[in-house]
Simulated scan of single mutants.
Amino acid sequence: MTTAPPVPPASHWPDHGGEQPSSSTPPGWAIWITAAAAVVAVIGGGLIAVRNVGSPPPAASPLDTGSQVESPASPPSGQPSSPGPTLDRSTGPTDDPAEPSASPTITSTFPPLQDVPEVCDLLTESLIARLAPKAASGPGVAKDGYGAKRKDCEWQQKGYNMKGGYTHTRSISVKVNVFPDHEKAMRNADSDWRLMRYLSGRSEGDPPITKYGEIKQISGLGDGACAIYSEGTRRREGMAWIYVVRGNATIEIRFRGSVIKGRSVFPMENSRSVPEAELLKGVEEIAGEAVKNLTG
């Protein structure tokens, strides 16, 4: 998830209008000018009447009673200047077949969550040992906000996974957001998917410090999921990022990996990024485990 990156959340509907300003009593000088103008108009009308004495009256034009059209009423001051997701067509025709008359109802087959579970319990120890050896979990610092309850967990490298003189590092972060309903969760996810579409195939920085692969739509995970791969050009580390919607919850997962020469857990210029296919396959498996264990 083309255009400039969206402004993060999703999110939030400013006041598009306001009350009309209340009228105030005109100052004295304005009343004096208005009165003077009225006197001039009366005198001018009398002069015109005297000037036209003796002239034949103009022919009366027929009164057109069928062609008078009332001007349309102006919209209320609180109505936005541009249409939102749903359009109010009560004041105009619906001749454009390309625009739907109403937004479709967003539904989900997953039961809504009432609270956020302990995210560190969503992934099994066997999965962590296979995808991120030597990594240990710890709760993150996610805070509630933007209308959602949030919790996260991180599995960070705590030891040296050595193979042939190289350290293979892997780390996982999982964040779960629970919204009041499915529609708000979809809006939040769509914001991240738009960002993925913007980053797809791009390089960021001058000179580039991050390169992005193509966005991938992943099926079989919740109500929808998209993923994208990125690679650091200075700190040689690859990352797969996936964003999933499941009912009224969203799941955001980042799976990082690099191959470092010697004993180190910090990627360097002579490191190698874990390839795109490997990290995308891993993050999809992590997301599947999280969705399966995300129950009320």
Rank of each mutant, 00 (worst) to 15 (best):
His12Lys: 09
Pro14Lys: 07
Gly18Lys: 05
Ala30Cys: 06
Trp32Phe: 08
Ile43Tyr: 03
Ile43Val: 15
Gly46Ala: 06
Arg51Val: 04
Arg51Leu: 11
Asn52Gly: 07
Ser55Met: 07
Pro57Thr: 07
Pro58Ala: 11
Ser61Phe: 02
Val69Gln: 10
Ala73Gln: 13
Ser74Arg: 13
Ser74Cys: 04
Pro75Ser: 08
Ser77Cys: 02
Pro85Gln: 07
Ser90Leu: 03
Gly92Gln: 10
Pro93Met: 00
Asp95Phe: 12
Ala102Leu: 08
Thr107Ala: 10
Thr109Arg: 11
Phe110Met: 06
Leu113Met: 13
Asp115Leu: 01
Glu118Val: 06
Glu125Phe: 01
Glu125Ile: 03
Ala129Phe: 04
Pro133Leu: 13
Ala135Tyr: 02
Ala135Phe: 06
Ala135Gln: 02
Asp144Gln: 07
Gly164Asp: 15
His168Tyr: 15
Thr169Met: 14
Ser171His: 07
Val174His: 05
Val176Gly: 00
Phe179Glu: 03
Ala185Asp: 02
Asp192Ala: 12
Tyr198Val: 14
Leu199Ile: 09
Leu199Lys: 14
Asp206Asn: 15
Pro207Gln: 07
Glu214Val: 14
Glu214Leu: 13
Ile215Ser: 05
Ser230Leu: 12
Gly232Val: 04
Thr233Glu: 11
Ala240Glu: 06
Ile242His: 05
Val244Tyr: 00
Gly247Val: 05
Asn248Ile: 02
Thr250Tyr: 03
Thr250Met: 01
Ile251Lys: 01
Ile253Leu: 11
Arg254Gly: 11
Arg256Trp: 12
Arg263Gln: 15
Ser264Asp: 14
Arg272Lys: 14
Arg272Thr: 06
Leu280Phe: 04
Leu280Gln: 09
Gly282Arg: 08
Glu285His: 05
Ile286Asp: 00
Glu289Lys: 02
Val291Leu: 10
Thr295Lys: 15
